[in-house]
Design a protein around this nucleic acid. Structure first.
Length: 275
DNA sequence: AACCGTCTCAACCGCATTACT
DNA sequence: CAGTAATGCGGTTGAGACGGT
């Protein structure tokens, strides 16, 4: 038994919004505001739509301050940096990019930026000479449209790799209490110390709007900063290790690619010192 | 011109969290 | 404090656009 649907799907209109509906919603919100109740709004605005649908339409499309497309290189780096830091918390990432919505950032990542990141990873970790005996498609379910390139195949193979003993270790993991909705599900393998995901990643770290805050916050925000940055000479590597400890799913993708490429076993690293 | 595969992105779905009673 | 309703969020879908043959 799931929860009851928010509205009667049979009696409300679904699918793409017409310009008339857009105008109705826009003018209502501009005149009366949201009113703190999306469920009641459609009726008040004279729309035959689910409140949830109205909310989504307003937030993702009709709001006056929204930008569509035209992502800058700096925005790319911010998204990349935050994604490697906190994972797919699109609302947080979008909040760092004025005029961008979580849905827009998510779509942009899934359709464009992810490929760009994979290209960077592929450049940093060249594919092995001999192909993997197991097709990547069999290892990991594919998602949406990013499924076909060779880099994505390596991405899928990489993402599928998670040592079982480390899956257990994560249960005792101390963690920074960052805004977080989803549970951590896996602990990534810690990479070889030589990992360097390339110039783009380094540039991203320069622009990072999350990790510097985290580390610069000292004891109050992240008491283990010295553990990471004190003992590791390469700051970029240290920051990525830190990311892996707290936001492992995403770093696993990148480092897994390195492991797949080099046939190297992941080393026990700083991450595990906190468990 | 027609077909086919890929890409894009708006919209939907369902779960988690928060607010309210 | 428990139950319920509302909201927020991330994952996924599918229709239309686009490009290649």
């Amino acid at each position: 038994m799931g929860r009851a649907p928010c509205c009667d799907k049979a009696s409300v209109k679904r699918g793409p919004w017409s310009p008339e509906e857009d105008e109705q919603l826009r003018s209502y919100v501009q005149r009366h505001g949201i009113g703190g109740n999306w469920i009641a709004l459609p009726q008040k605005a004279g729309l035959n739509r689910c409140g949830k649908s109205c909310r989504l339409r307003w937030l993702n499309y009709l709001r006056p301050d929204i930008k569509h497309g035209g992502y800058t290189e700096q925005e790319d780096r911010i998204i990349w940096s935050l994604y490697t830091s906190i994972g797919s918390r699109w609302s947080i990432i979008a909040s760092k990019l004025p005029g961008r919505t979580d849905n827009d950032v998510k779509n942009y990542w899934n359709t464009k930026l992810k490929k760009k990141a994979m290209a960077a990873a592929a450049a940093a970790f060249p594919a092995p000479a001999t192909p993997s005996p197991q097709p990547a498609a069999a290892l990991s379910p594919t998602s949406s449209s990013v499924t076909s390139s060779s880099s994505d195949a390596r991405f899928a193979a990489a993402a599928a790799y998670t040592p079982p003993q480390q899956q257990q270790q994560h249960q005792g993991l101390m963690h920074f209490d960052a805004p977080q909705r989803r549970q951590q599900t896996e602990l990534a393998p810690v990479p070889p110390a030589t990992v360097d995901s390339g110039a783009w990643a380094a540039a991203a770290l320069d622009d990072d709007v999350f990790l510097p805050d985290l580390v610069a916050g000292g004891e109050q925000l992240f008491p283990y900063a010295d553990l990471f940055f004190g003992g590791v000479q390469d700051r970029a590597t240290a920051a990525m290790e830190l990311s892996a400890c707290y936001f492992p799913n995403n770093m696993a993708e990148m480092w897994g690619a390195a492991a797949a490429a080099s046939d190297a076993k992941p080393q026990q690293g700083l991450c595990n010192t906190l468990t």
